[in-house]
């Protein structure tokens, strides 16, 4: 049941994501790619949960690395995008 619910969410979110952008000026291709790349750091949610519940220290270590990498992706991604977009303004 839970699985069915998750699959439905996946399908609905994919359809919405597929329709959200239609026309993008080519100037914005890279910043948009960079911005959505930052959001793909969302996998941090998974890394936080599995690290917290991991029992063996090996798994905890791998999970720790996962949280670090995902946070670099998130923070770095948003800051980089912000810098790129600011450049266009000036």
């Amino acid at each position: 049941m839970k699985e069915m619910f998750l699959i439905i969410i996946f399908i609905v979110a994919s359809l919405l994501g597929y329709r959200v952008i239609k026309e993008v000026p080519s100037l914005l291709h890279t910043p948009l790619m960079s911005g959505t790349n930052a959001i793909s750091g969302v996998t941090i949610l998974g890394s936080l949960v599995s690290t917290a519940y991991a029992v063996s220290s090996g798994s905890k270590f791998l999970g720790f690395i996962a949280v670090v990498l995902a946070t670099v992706n998130l923070v770095g991604g948003f800051v980089v995008t912000d810098r790129m977009l600011k450049m266009f303004k000036s």
Binding site: F10, A13, T36
Partner: peptide, 22 residues
């Protein structure tokens, strides 16, 4: 899906699909 987190599924799918259209 693996950790059964609807928020991760939804946002991941949005990025996956919008990345494809981009």
């Amino acid at each position: 899906f693996t950790i059964e987190d609807p928020l991760l599924v939804a946002v991941g799918a949005i990025v996956g699909a919008s990345g494809l259209i981009l």
